[in-house]
């Protein structure tokens, strides 16, 4: 199995899907001539031409709406946002148009579109460029929210997202683009709505997604040295949430920590905790704890930024707490 970066895994998914289905096209800022702000679309303009790899003006609302309009009449656009920070300019299009068209039209008009780009913090990009917005979109019925953590999942989930008949918010990780991993060639499709046990363990479940998967795996390694077997459950899809997998894992371990990059208030973890306390109450030996980004705009200073982010030490501390190991 070849080893690819996360970036190239996405590139392969796009290339394969565009080759498979002539209705699939890519649109966004710098996706063509520039080869992609993060080089995800490298080579696609040459291969598919300017009608299918469309450079847009810096006009997020506008091209998101263009993509939705094209999807309403049957095309399958992949709309790239240079980052999800900029996509806030387009959130009206996603929430009021993409998410609601099928319902408002009683099933007559769907929006089979993918909106993708990197989310979350990178390094020292400061407050306006370091934000995790998955809970914003996951709040909205009608949208699906997908967040791959590994190169293999990046490819398999993007192929599923493009083939899905619903609008899919596909949030990548800027810090993940260089992550390497084995990726199956050709038809590798990961279904939406299915979480994945990235590491099995019997003492505690660490629920995570996107960048926090790597953080959780590192924490699990250190905990193993200490005799604690942590199970790392990667949600992969935020909406629809794989509650079955979460509950099954908690039923095995009886303790749970939820790690996410975003802010704590009304975050994805809050939804996971709600599900657990409601449906696995009698399985719990301790309250479920959350590890989140600090409840502040992201600071620029390197030390402050580090303090604001989720890291393995914070996850380990939470695991100790739910194991009553103080």
């Amino acid at each position: 199995m070849p080893t690819l970066t996360y970036r190239d895994a996405l590139n392969h998914a796009l290339r394969e899907e565009m080759a498979r289905d002539p209705d699939v096209f890519l649109m966004g800022e710098e996706v063509g001539v520039y080869q992609g702000a993060y080089k995800v679309s490298r080579g696609l303009l040459d291969e598919f031409g300017p009608m299918r790899v469309v450079d847009t003006p810096i006009t997020e609302l506008g091209f998101a709406g263009v993509g939705i309009g094209a999807a309403m009449v049957g095309l399958r656009p992949v709309i790239e946002f240079m980052t999800w920070n900029f996509a806030l300019l387009a959130i009206d299009q996603l929430v009021n148009n993409a998410a609601k068209m099928r319902y408002m039209s009683n099933g007559q008009v769907g929006v089979p579109a993918v909106f993708r780009g990197p989310g979350g913090a990178a390094l020292q990009l400061a407050a306006q460029h370091s934000q995790a917005f998955e809970s914003f979109y996951a709040h909205v019925p009608g949208l699906k929210v997908v967040m791959p953590a590994t190169p293999a999942d990046a490819k398999g989930l993007l192929k599923s997202a493009i083939r899905d008949d619903n609008p899919v918010v596909f949030i990548e990780g800027e810090m993940l683009y260089n992550l390497k991993g084995e990726v199956p060639e050709g038809e590798h499709v990961v279904p939406l709505g299915k979480a994945d046990v990235k590491r099995a363990g019997r003492d505690v479940t660490i629920v995570c997604h996107s960048k926090t998967v790597a953080v959780a795996l590192k924490a699990a390694d250190e905990l193993a040295d200490d005799g604690v077997e942590a199970e790392v459950l990667d949600l992969r899809t935020i909406r629809p949430l794989d509650t079955e997998a979460v509950l099954a894992s908690v039923a095995r371990t009886h303790r749970c920590v939820v790690a996410e990059e975003g802010w704590p208030f009304a975050g994805v973890g809050a939804q996971v905790v709600d599900t657990i306390q409601r449906e696995a109450f009698d399985e719990l030996d301790a309250p479920v704890l959350r590890v989140t980004g600090a409840d502040v705009p992201m600071p620029y200073n390197k030390q402050l930024e580090k303090a604001a982010k989720v890291d393995p030490a914070k996850v380990i501390a939470a695991v100790h707490s739910v194991l009553y190991r103080d």
Binding site: R278, D282, E283, D285
Partner: peptide
């Protein structure tokens, strides 16, 4: 239905007051 089914089993109150226990320990 699930919500109803997961209502906690009531622990017998003791003279000292309510016993604190995790839901799992109670079950």
């Amino acid at each position: 239905e699930r919500a109803a089914a997961s209502a906690p089993a009531a622990a017998a109150p003791t003279p000292e007051g309510r016993v604190k226990a995790s839901p799992l320990a109670r079950r």
